[in-house]
Design a protein around this nucleic acid. Structure first.
Lengths: 354, 354
DNA sequence: TTGAAAGCGTTACCAG
DNA sequence: CTGGTAACGCTTTCAA
């Protein structure tokens, strides 16, 4: 493997000059630069990032912490991050965070604690104070997308507002018995994405005068039903069967906390022979790429764009200052929530009978 | 940030001893080791991997090249890789490879060419000879999962056999007008996954005496129809509408090259008012986690397991020898194909009328 | 504009 | 079993 010394010798200059010519830092005669670059490409020289990191303290590598790869939202965010990072010449080191357990702390206490990444982007994780403290102590910029925890830079949509909007949409259509399929932890973690969306739902139904029913088997009539489930399609399907199975208790509308859950509910409804949207209205959240295929009304967000932006923010925090300090507001729009948009499709309509 | 010198000083030993005590390499008195470890944890010392890489030549980092994150198969493989790597104390650097263009060559010629990764795992990519040559020249072990290209270590299922099996299943049920929804490149890249599955289909239908029909709008009657499309659900839906839209030309069975495509076909059939499996049988490939939900007959493979195995192979190639040389057969079972399994569900049955 | 030399933090060799 | 010392490959002062 050729080192910079080889390039220097071939070009007849010192290592210092070769370094300057190739990295672009510092002045070097145009002619010399060309000679060095020629020599470098001739022997196929590529700088060792490790050696460079050692002296500069920068790794040009960003750590990404993510709980699932195989959920559309997370995959899409990852995609946006990857593209942007690649274009900026950065590497992306992936940490697939187990929900909890020793593996989780190992990620924070060992992997992220080392000097291998310049900054960390955390997607959809509810960070504990201890985890945040650990990262801050190491002066690593942290950018969060969704999730919760007292961190300086967080990109997020207005999840409470999303919950309220989805619910209002159904209420305005005339539904009076509405279920919310919330994410796991909606009640135990009020600050989480699941918790905020659920809160928006509950406040809105409450304001409309709908009583909160104990569970899905409560007697018929107006009311709000809250069920927690995993945010994926299989769990949405299972919860959907449960929720819609009993004709007398069935709600006329379901607000699912994610589009994938909503897909599951739709299939459950079909399985039960319900016709949509006559017998049931369903609304989701995300703007999943399959939403159109399922004719699903949803509240869109742009995960890819959020990923792109997270990288921009991280890079800005890195560039502006050494690390954790008082960089003035790295977030766009002073940290205002990211945009969302209600997209109405065929899965929501007025209930069949009043 | 504490360095190993600080630890050594605090423990009253030399840097060399401190290094040995912490890394576990070389002998050191049990008592000394404890003292060093205590000192290290006291000041929160964590070794800099960059400095270590510089001298050992090993980065404890594996590069993963993948064309999509948001396809179930790829996400599942990635998941298996991540878990295994994490357990082994390795980092995973992700390269989301654009299908082609300058970005693609940049990944190979710049990112992977540097000394930042010890080995590369490539998932579902048709590697060009140039790309393979570049990696071999840098003596980087390469492990492929699926895809094509003349590489030493490849984990793969018997895609040709899968194509044949899926087709036989339909033939044995009595279907005589069968369409194959192949992946893009099935005809132009015969060695690709899409190409092999399509070949299995064509040979099997041919052996059964079914003529290959020009396209989906060919006149009715017995025959084999081949259509290429993207392996995702939206493309499967679109192709499904096209294929099934004309009642007179409609095949009675579809073999989709992936489960996601199959899901799309199923929804297309539903949209067209077809009843399954009475009017149409559908079989897919993958063993997608939603297959049961769609009641889809499929040929299962285990991407997560393949990911785990790929890491094992890569690590073995790394451990056994310096790098590219003559390590004897790092693949399990002498490179035999990974297992697959036909899982019959409700989406396939005898055709309604003979 | 260029060169010489001093590190960056670690491991590995060679004595003791 | 332990300590000194020389690397690893690069960037970056500091002089020239």
């Amino acid at each position: 493997m050729p080192a910079i010394g080889d390039v220097a010798r071939l070009a007849g200059v010192s290592k210092a000059t070769a370094s300057r010519a190739l990295s672009g830092r510092g002045h070097v005669a145009a002619d010399t630069r060309r000679r060095v670059q020629l020599a470098a490409s001739e022997i196929g020289y590529i700088a060792s990032p490790d050696a460079a990191s050692l002296v500069t303290g920068r790794t040009k590598n960003i750590g990404v912490v993510i709980p699932f790869v195989n959920r559309w939202f997370f995959g899409a965010v990852l995609d946006g991050i990857e593209r942007t990072l690649l274009a900026a010449g950065y590497d992306l080191t992936l940490y697939n965070l187990p929900v909890s357990g020793p593996e989780r702390s190992r990620v924070f206490e060992f992997f992220l604690a080392r000097k291998r990444v310049d900054a960390v982007i955390v997607i959809g994780v509810d960070l504990t104070p201890g985890e945040i403290g650990g990262l801050e102590r190491r002066e690593k910029p942290v950018v969060c997308i969704g999730g919760s925890g007292e961190v300086t830079a967080r990109l997020t949509i207005d999840d409470h507002g999303v919950g309220a909007l989805a619910t209002s949409h159904l209420l305005h259509l005339g539904h009076t018995r509405i279920a919310h399929l919330a994410g796991v932890g909606a009640t135990s973690q009020p600050a989480s994405v699941a918790g905020l969306r659920a809160a928006g739902f509950l406040e809105t139904t409450d304001a409309a005068g709908l009583p909160l029913l104990a569970d899905e088997s409560s007697a018929g009539g107006p009311g709000a039903i809250l069920v927690e489930a995993d945010m994926g399609m299989p769990a949405g399907f299972a919860a959907g069967l449960q929720l819609l199975g009993h004709p007398a208790h069935r709600p006329t509308a379901v607000f699912a906390a994610s589009d994938e859950m909503a897909f599951g509910v739709i299939r459950a409804a079909e399985r039960l022979g319900l016709s949509m949207p006559r017998d049931l209205s369903v609304i989701g959240v995300d703007g999943h790429e399959h939403a159109e295929l399922f004719d699903l009304t949803t509240i869109e967000q742009s995960p890819t764009e959020q990923g792109r932006l997270a990288v921009e923010v991280a890079l800005r925090m890195l560039g502006g200052e050494g690390g954790g300090g008082g960089a003035p507001d790295p977030l766009p729009d002073s940290g205002a929530p990211m945009p969302t948009r209600l997209v109405v499709r065929g899965s929501t309509a007025r209930p069949a009978v009043a």
